[in-house]
Amino acid sequence: MLRKPDESNQVMTTPVRIAAFDRARTFIILLVLLHHSVLNYTWFGHGDPKRWLGFDLVVLFNDSFFMAFMFLVSGLFVRDSLVRKGPAIFLRDRAWRLGVPYLISVFVLIPVAYYPSFLRYHLPGTTDFSFAHFWWRTVTVGPWPSGPAWFLWVLLALDAIAAAVWVFAPRFIPALGQFIFGLRDRPVKAFLWFLIFSIATYLPMHLAFGDVSWLELGRFPLPIQSSRILLYASYFFIGIGVGAVDLRTGLLAENGEPARRWPVWLAFAFVFYVSILVLVYAHHNWVANFDSPPLPWKVGYGLAFAMYSAAMAFTVTGIFLHFAKSRWSLLDAMQPSAYGIYLVHYIFIMWLQYAVFDYPLPAGVKFVIVFAGTFSMSWAVTAMLRKIPLVARMI
């Protein structure tokens, strides 16, 4: 049963952990590593001259849903954290878990990761920049990239908004939870609502900004993709609404109707993904002005993207919930280190891509070297860092 607002002072002593959501989050982080490993070898990319069109399909598969899904999962336990800790301690803990790693990332990890890119495009004799010079110019003049750390600052900002809503509009989260909880036995209606919501929060922004625009606050490393601002925020608050009840009995229950119908959601996701592929093919082959496609194409792509993102959210959660009692050896072993892997992996991605750049190897071989090396070294480094108690409490 949905907790009533006046029951919110009944604090749980320990947070709830549900293996299916841990695995889903870990799976997405694994996709992040895969995504960044293949980007340099995509046919329509601007990286390594060795390319394979199949990697473009991987990038399209990932990029069209996985970060929105990360925000959805990140919202699931926000309500219980606010109940258990209160908004002040909640924000303090989120600043420790997100803000500190973000600062370490943008001041240390990301400059180290991007230095090989600087070396590649500033050949010996054209500059005398050492890493120290490169770092100083990055943080004082720019450009100052954030790499994957952009997710941390956006999630921290959304956590702050959620805490403010908890204080100043205390009825909102329970009401949202009540609405979502009421759909637990009506999966088709829930799916349709989620499709409509995804379209409403993505399509207008897509039409206004396109998909290549990033909102950046001056030269500071605080970017977010303009067309997805509302999509990410909406998925995060949907996650909060889902988590406003006991997750074991609500919309995303292991034995619930949405979980049992995962093949249906997978079929819809496949149809929407194929729609995206058709539109991308049309864009590259039949649109005269590549940089300014016609409005019907923009509308079609925006609809396909939003619906695919929604369908994949149902698919991934449905699969991991339905098979919650199955063994997922790799994901379960990786789960404690997943956050740390996300934080450090970009260093190994960039340096390994730089290391194999000049070798006449097929794109697939280069990808295997980069992915396997990144995965193993990121995991090993994270495991070592987690032996430090202070670091272990953070990641």
Rank of each mutant, 00 (worst) to 15 (best):
residue 1 M to T: 13
residue 1 M to I: 12
residue 6 D to F: 03
residue 13 T to D: 14
residue 16 V to Y: 02
residue 18 I to L: 15
residue 22 D to E: 14
residue 24 A to Y: 00
residue 28 I to F: 04
residue 30 L to H: 04
residue 32 V to A: 12
residue 37 S to V: 07
residue 43 W to Q: 14
residue 44 F to W: 13
residue 46 H to A: 13
residue 47 G to M: 10
residue 54 G to E: 09
residue 56 D to A: 08
residue 61 F to T: 13
residue 68 A to V: 03
residue 69 F to N: 05
residue 70 M to V: 11
residue 74 S to M: 06
residue 74 S to R: 01
residue 84 R to G: 04
residue 87 P to V: 05
residue 90 F to H: 10
residue 96 W to Q: 13
residue 98 L to E: 10
residue 98 L to S: 07
residue 99 G to D: 12
residue 107 F to K: 04
residue 108 V to C: 11
residue 112 V to F: 10
residue 113 A to H: 06
residue 122 H to M: 13
residue 127 T to M: 06
residue 137 R to Q: 15
residue 138 T to H: 03
residue 141 V to Y: 07
residue 144 W to R: 02
residue 146 S to E: 15
residue 151 F to M: 07
residue 158 L to Q: 08
residue 165 V to K: 02
residue 165 V to Y: 02
residue 168 F to C: 08
residue 169 A to C: 04
residue 186 R to Y: 08
residue 191 F to E: 07
residue 192 L to W: 06
residue 197 F to T: 09
residue 207 L to N: 02
residue 211 D to I: 11
residue 213 S to P: 00
residue 220 F to L: 15
residue 223 P to N: 12
residue 223 P to F: 09
residue 225 Q to K: 05
residue 228 R to M: 12
residue 237 F to Q: 07
residue 241 G to S: 13
residue 241 G to H: 07
residue 243 G to R: 02
residue 247 L to C: 01
residue 249 T to Q: 13
residue 253 A to H: 01
residue 259 A to R: 00
residue 262 W to G: 07
residue 267 A to H: 01
residue 273 Y to R: 01
residue 274 V to N: 05
residue 277 L to N: 13
residue 277 L to S: 11
residue 281 Y to N: 15
residue 283 H to R: 09
residue 291 D to E: 11
residue 296 P to W: 04
residue 298 K to F: 03
residue 312 M to Q: 03
residue 319 I to E: 00
residue 319 I to N: 00
residue 320 F to V: 02
residue 321 L to W: 01
residue 322 H to Q: 05
residue 323 F to A: 06
residue 329 S to T: 15
residue 332 D to G: 04
residue 334 M to S: 04
residue 336 P to D: 09
residue 341 I to Y: 00
residue 345 H to E: 11
residue 347 I to V: 15
residue 349 I to Y: 08
residue 352 L to W: 06
residue 354 Y to R: 09
residue 354 Y to P: 11
residue 360 P to G: 12
residue 366 K to W: 04
residue 366 K to F: 05
residue 366 K to R: 03
residue 374 T to F: 11
residue 375 F to S: 13
residue 376 S to M: 15
residue 380 A to L: 15
residue 383 A to H: 05
residue 387 K to W: 03
residue 395 I to L: 14
